[in-house]
Amino acid sequence: MKITEPPRTPGQRKQELLDRLERELDVWVATADREGLPCLVALWFVWDGEHLWLSTRLTNPTGRNLREGGRARLALGDTRDVVLVDGEVETYTREEVPEAAARAFLEKTGWDPGRDSASYAYFRVRPVAVQTWREVHELHRRHLMRDGVWVV
């Protein structure tokens, strides 16, 4: 495949990222346990303008890793339109989750994890680093956020 489009500006990439966070439903979630055993799974997510909200069981590897490790890497897109988000994770039981977050999750996905099973929890991911790129010509300006601050 040849690169035929000029690189997007960082501002264009940030706006496209924000649009995708509102529009897309699934995100790849990468975590690791205490021994470093990786786990990768796709989950539904909701973007509230500052955080990504996920939900899964506390009893599965992803839920345990999110709760115990407090970090995750999230990925959107394919190899020609990549978004990587490194984030810090906070865990909320179905009783603790803010009502607005639970309502937004239900509105976007049609699923209420809190009603599904007591083993489901919500996980709020605060982005600390965000990278986006299409093809090699955007790699040198791929960082949109560093240390939790937008650089664009």
Score class of each variant (00 low, 15 high):
Leu74Met: 14
Ala129Tyr: 01
Pro6Ile: 03
Val136Phe: 07
Thr56Tyr: 02
His137Cys: 12
Asp116Val: 14
Asp112Ser: 09
Asp112Val: 00
Leu106Pro: 00
Lys14Pro: 15
Val82Pro: 01
Pro6Ser: 07
Asp112Glu: 09
Leu84Gln: 14
Val130Arg: 00
Val83Phe: 14
Trp111Ala: 14
Glu22Tyr: 03
Arg146Trp: 10
Ala30Gln: 08
Leu58Ile: 07
Met1Arg: 11
Met145Val: 08
His51Ala: 02
Val82Cys: 05
Trp28Ala: 13
Leu40Lys: 02
His143Ile: 15
Ala42Cys: 12
Arg142Ile: 10
Gly77Ala: 11
Glu22Ala: 12
Phe123Ala: 01
Pro6Ala: 12
Phe105Ser: 01
Phe45Asn: 00
Glu5Ile: 03
Pro10Asp: 02
Gln15Tyr: 10
Glu99Cys: 06
Glu96Lys: 01
Asp78Glu: 13
Thr56Gly: 12
Thr79Arg: 14
Thr109Ile: 05
Gly69Gln: 13
Thr132Leu: 08
His51Trp: 05
Pro61His: 10
Ala129Asn: 04
Ala75Leu: 12
Pro10Phe: 08
Gly63Cys: 07
Thr9Ile: 09
Leu52Ile: 14
Leu58Gly: 15
Val89Trp: 02
Arg34Ser: 08
Glu22Met: 06
Leu18Cys: 05
Val85Cys: 06
Ala101Thr: 04
Ser117Thr: 04
Val128Gly: 12
His143Ser: 15
Asp112Gln: 12
Leu139Ala: 13
Gly148Tyr: 03
Arg64Cys: 13
Arg124Asp: 13
Ala30Thr: 03
Val97Pro: 14
Val128Ser: 13
Glu16Arg: 09
Arg103Ser: 08
Val149Gln: 15
Pro10Tyr: 02
Ala100Glu: 15
Leu76Ser: 05
Lys14Asp: 05
Arg13Phe: 12
Leu17Gly: 08
Ala100Ile: 10
Ala118His: 10
Gly148Thr: 02
Gly114Ser: 06
Ala42His: 08
Leu40Arg: 04
Gly70Asp: 05
Arg126Met: 08
Tyr92Asp: 09
Gly70Ser: 07
Glu95Met: 07
Ala121Arg: 09
Asp26Ile: 14
Leu21Pro: 00
Gln12Arg: 11
Asp78Lys: 14
Trp53Asp: 01
Ala42Gly: 10
Arg142His: 10
Asp81Val: 12
Pro127Gly: 07
Gly148Phe: 03
